[in-house]
């Protein structure tokens, strides 16, 4: 896909998004004036989304007229090389988030870091293991202990019982 095509698709996507926001603003809400209480709850988001729609249509018109540099560009939007670098990173984060729901954030982080350091960074096993264990431990100390914000642990929760005993006894 070239930058030119990407701009067209993005304009279409922003138009659809604006329409969705406009529809949701009227969903059970008043967009007009309610005597005694002022503008309805939906008014502000509705008119803002209408503005979004107009701005997106404006971009679309400019695209057709070739007024933006992007609309005239035949460069590749996301090159193969970029896709490898950015795609694997984004994929790894996606995995991290999905895995958090099943094995908890600490275990997911460990796997995410292992993968990143070893297979994307191609660092040695020593550095990889050290960092992949060290970083989650640091995050644990910072969040659970110092900030008192427990991160999700899902099925790995029982593994933390001994540490809780130490922390709160």
């Amino acid at each position: 896909m070239t930058v030119r095509h990407a701009e067209l698709w993005m304009a279409i996507a922003t138009i659809l998004l604006s329409l969705a926001f406009m529809y949701k603003s009227t969903d059970g809400l008043s967009i007009g004036w309610i005597p005694g209480t002022g503008p309805g709850s939906g008014a502000w988001p509705f008119w803002l989304s209408t503005g979004m729609l107009l701005a997106s249509l404006w971009t679309l018109v400019r695209w057709f007229r070739g007024a933006t540099p992007e609309a005239r560009s035949s460069e590749v939007y996301i090159s193969r090389e970029t896709l490898v670098v950015v795609g694997t990173s984004a994929g790894a984060i996606l995995f991290l988030l999905a895995a958090t729901h099943f094995i908890g954030m600490y275990a997911a982080l460990l796997l995410f870091l292992l993968f990143y350091f070893r297979f994307i960074g191609r660092h040695g096993w020593r550095a990889t293991t050290l960092l992949s264990i060290g970083i989650p431990v640091f995050i644990f100390c910072l969040f659970e202990w110092a900030l008192q914000i427990p991160l999700p642990k899902a099925i790995t929760e029982p593994l933390f019982y001994p540490i809780y005993d130490l922390m709160y006894s």
Binding site: S89, L94, L97, M105, L109, L113, Y116, I135, F143, L151
Partner: peptide
Amino acid sequence: FTILAPIIFTLCIVGGYAPTQTMHDVWLMF
């Protein structure tokens, strides 16, 4: 950069979780 990037991603994820403590917000952030 391959050492720095995952560390920053990690800080982003846990930092995104901290204010409201829901995974919903972390997904939204992504």
